[in-house]
Simulated scan of single mutants.
Amino acid sequence: MIKKQSSNSITEAITERRKALYIRKGYISLLIRIALIAAVGYILFTQVFLITQARGNDMFPAIKDGDLIIAFRLQKELVKDDIVVYEVGDVTRLGRIVALENDEVLLDDSGVFRLNGTPQSGEIVFQTFPKDGYDYPLQVPEGRLFLLGDHRNQTKDSRDHGPVSFEDLKGKVITILRRRGL
């Protein structure tokens, strides 16, 4: 009888150790999966996508103060009317591409924006007046874009700091999540 009890206790001890080993392996596997998901998330949201919040009403009415912006960082082909996130100095801004490299921008006191001699209006309700510092017509240099905010009377854009270099672009806006009292 003593032999039966000791063999049962040995079997139980082995079973308990196996359970503990399986539990430990399960936790290690879970930690590895969590680390892998965190690494993939980090790469996605630092190298592929950009998530930022709109500050101010530079792009009003298209983008309002506080809206959450998701931008794609790997966009290679940009076209007129794309909205982009860019950096000037240490300030991150939003702007609409209104002229590509080698385009001619003409702003005058009438408030009409002309691109390559053709008046541009689109859906922008605000007039586009020149600001001090640049002479128009302005030829957009190679490797640069001319960006304007939609709320032309209150924004800082290429009329203030000149055409923006491709290196200063942070991403092309692909999604706008509206803030609803948050």
Score class of each variant (00 low, 15 high):
Ala54Trp: 01
Leu68Trp: 11
Val88Ser: 05
Val79Met: 15
Tyr22His: 11
Ile70Thr: 13
Leu74Trp: 14
Phe49Leu: 15
Ala99Ile: 01
Gln53Arg: 13
Arg96Asn: 10
Leu78Ala: 06
Asp67Ile: 00
Arg93Tyr: 14
Asp67Pro: 01
Tyr22Thr: 05
Ala39Ser: 14
Gln120Asp: 06
Val125Gly: 08
Lys80Pro: 07
Asn102Arg: 13
Ala39Tyr: 04
Ser110Glu: 08
Phe129Arg: 01
Ala99Asn: 01
Tyr136Met: 15
Arg18Cys: 12
Arg17Leu: 08
Asn116Ile: 01
Tyr136Ser: 12
Tyr42Gln: 09
Ala71Thr: 03
Leu21Gly: 02
Thr52Pro: 11
Val84Cys: 04
Ile83Gly: 02
Asn116Asp: 06
Gln75Glu: 13
Phe113Ala: 02
Gln47Gly: 05
Pro119Met: 04
Pro130Ala: 03
Glu123Gly: 15
Ile124Gly: 08
Leu36Asn: 04
Ala20Gln: 14
Gly122Phe: 15
Asn57Gln: 14
Asn57Ala: 10
Gln139Tyr: 12
Val91Ser: 15
Ile51Arg: 07
Ala71Pro: 02
Ser121Thr: 12
Val48Ser: 07
Arg114Lys: 14
Tyr27Glu: 04
Leu100Thr: 07
Leu115Trp: 01
Val84Asp: 03
Val105Glu: 01
Arg114Tyr: 09
Asp90Met: 13
Arg93Ala: 10
Ala62Phe: 07
Val84His: 00
Ala62Asp: 13
Ile124Asn: 10
Leu36Asp: 09
Asp132Ser: 11
Asp109Cys: 03
Arg24His: 06
Leu78Gly: 07
Leu94Trp: 03
Glu123Asn: 15
Ile34Gly: 02
Leu94Gly: 02
Ser121Pro: 03
Ala99Cys: 06
Ile124Ser: 13
Leu138Asn: 04
Val91Lys: 14
Ser110Pro: 01
Arg93Asp: 03
Val125Arg: 13
Tyr86His: 15
Pro141Lys: 03
Gln75Pro: 06
Val105Leu: 08
Ser29Cys: 05
Leu106Asp: 15
Gly26Ala: 13
Phe113Tyr: 02
Thr52Trp: 08
Phe113Trp: 03
Ser29His: 05
Phe113Leu: 06
Arg18Thr: 08
Leu68Gln: 15
Gly89Trp: 09
Val105Lys: 00
Leu100Arg: 10
Ile37Glu: 07
Arg73Asn: 04
Ala35Asp: 00
Tyr136Ala: 10
Phe72Tyr: 12
